[in-house]
Design a protein around this nucleic acid. Structure first.
Length: 412
RNA sequence: GUGGCCGUAGCUCAGCCUGGUUAGAGCGCCUGGUUGUGGUCCAGGAAGUCGCGGGUUCGAAUCCCGUCGGUCACCCCA
């Protein structure tokens, strides 16, 4: 059959058995968030376009060319969310703002119009946690630790935290002038992209790979922190050392979203062979609430890239998918078999059967393929109120009473 | 958005350079050997507009162009 319809470019269907691993990834994330004291929040998958253009920043790559923007029938400009933080902050502001502290988690798809490749999809999944209302560097440490623990639980090997501080907004103005001057003096040697960015967003020139040689000599934000930001950064590092979370200072790390200040970081999977080695990233964004119309609220958060983590994670053996597979040996006892399946399911046993009225041999084969623990044969012995239960792993089998079969199976 | 490579059965691929009778393999799937017993083995079988469209040619999976999709790198990011 020729394929008429395909999943849109850069999107994936997640089919069994991989879907089981994805479900596990989500459960692991939500459970860990609860362990850390974060509550799940659900927000829309689309928002007013302006939320992102203002929140994320007009001059960012995301806003300039990666947004899925459309006009609805009411004439509103809406955008499929390219990231979660702006929505989460908006939701909190809309709900009346943060009183004291608020710790929330979110999970779901994000959308960015990019050229797809391995580990970079147009619809991709993130798990986020956000710590609102807490200026302490220990909040940064907690959020960094959360992401690190999640990667541990997901069995992503060789993770290191790439860490930097880009200072506060006020300090950054001074640094920005310094950097702009420095870049202007060398603009003839810079790539076109970098040169164009000097005026709009000079910090982003820092992580340009094309200009890596030149930029390596540039003044780094971390060398020009004001006292408060410098002390904050010192405390973050102290906390990470205390928790023995491996990190390294990455002086050129600036991140692509404009709302960050002070601490920024990414989780790099150093043994992963692929261009997309960042499994997650985060930062502090003390100015975003105000920018989006709320009262000033310190905040720090992280986004974990689930698609990449699934690529990086060690594969785990799948558990048996079924407890019982009912084999109907005598077509005249089909109703009895169907009733037994229903009864076992109501008792909570994962149970299935082959409805195609095939040979017993074929049904056993199906039971085996379904990775069932037991095959339960409904045949002549049904007349005596019995079924034959065969352990598909050991090959041992026994004819037992139908009455109480659920308990019998569970007891094995 | 830029460049390289790729696109043949459900899956992994061979065939393509050097166009030519019914397009192959392994795995998987179905049936039988086993009219009530799977996982091993044996036999048989089903399944392919050779991504799509156009061109060259007597003839195209094979050559050319376009297009869609994948992939790798860049850009950038999760």
């Amino acid at each position: 059959m020729p394929v008429t319809y395909r999943a849109p470019k850069g999107t994936d269907d997640v089919l069994p058995p991989e879907s089981r691993a994805w479900l596990r990834a989500e459960k692991t994330f939500v459970d860990l968030a609860e362990v850390f004291g974060y509550d799940i929040v659900l927000t829309p998958y689309f928002e007013a376009t302006e939320l992102f253009s203002r929140g994320v920043g007009e001059a960012t790559e995301v806003v300039e060319k990666q947004m899925y923007t459309f006009t609805d029938k009411g004439g509103r400009s809406l955008t499929l969310r390219p990231e979660a933080t702006a929505s989460l902050v908006r939701a909190m502001v809309e709900a009346g703002g943060v009183h004291g502290t608020e710790k929330i988690a979110a999970w779901g798809p994000m959308f960015r119009y990019e050229k797809p490749q391995r580990g970079r999809r147009r619809q991709f999944y993130q798990g986020d946690i956000e710590y609102f209302g807490e200026p302490s560097p220990d909040a940064d440490v907690e959020v960094i630790e959360f992401g690190y623990r999640y990667l541990e639980e997901m069995a992503v090997p060789d993770v290191v935290v790439a860490l930097n501080s880009i200072g506060d907004v006020e300090d950054r103005a001074t640094y920005r002038d310094l950097l702009t001057t420095w870049l202007m003096e060398r603009q003839d040697d810079l790539s076109d992209d970098a040169r164009n960015r000097i005026a709009s967003n000079p910090l982003r020139v820092l992580d340009s790979k094309a200009d890596a040689d030149i930029v390596a000599e540039a003044p780094a934000p971390v060398e020009h922190l004001a006292d408060a930001a410098a002390e904050h950064f010192t405390q973050v590092q102290r906390g990470l050392r205390r928790l023995q979370i491996p990190y390294r200072i990455e002086a050129r790390l600036v991140r692509g979203l404009d709302y960050y200040n002070r601490t920024v970081w990414e989780y790099l999977a150093t043994s992963y062979e692929g261009a997309q080695d960042a499994a997650g990233g985060g930062g502090r964004y003390d100015g975003l609430f105000e920018l989006l119309g709320g009262k000033p609220t310190p905040a720090v958060g992280v986004a974990m890239g689930i698609d990449r983590i699934m690529l990086m994670a060690g594969k785990r053996a799948d558990q048996p998918a079924l407890d019982a597979f009912v084999v109907i040996a005598d077509p005249n006892r089909r109703d009895a078999g169907l009733d037994l399946v229903s009864e076992l399911r109501r008792r909570g046993l994962r149970t299935d059967l082959d409805l195609a009225e095939r040979s017993v041999s074929a049904q056993f084969k199906a039971a085996d393929r379904a990775a069932a623990a037991w095959a339960v044969v409904v045949g002549d012995e049904w007349a005596d109120g019995k079924v034959t239960a065969r352990n598909l792993a050991t090959g041992e089998q026994e004819t037992v009473a139908v009455e109480g079969i659920e308990a019998w199976l569970k007891g094995r």
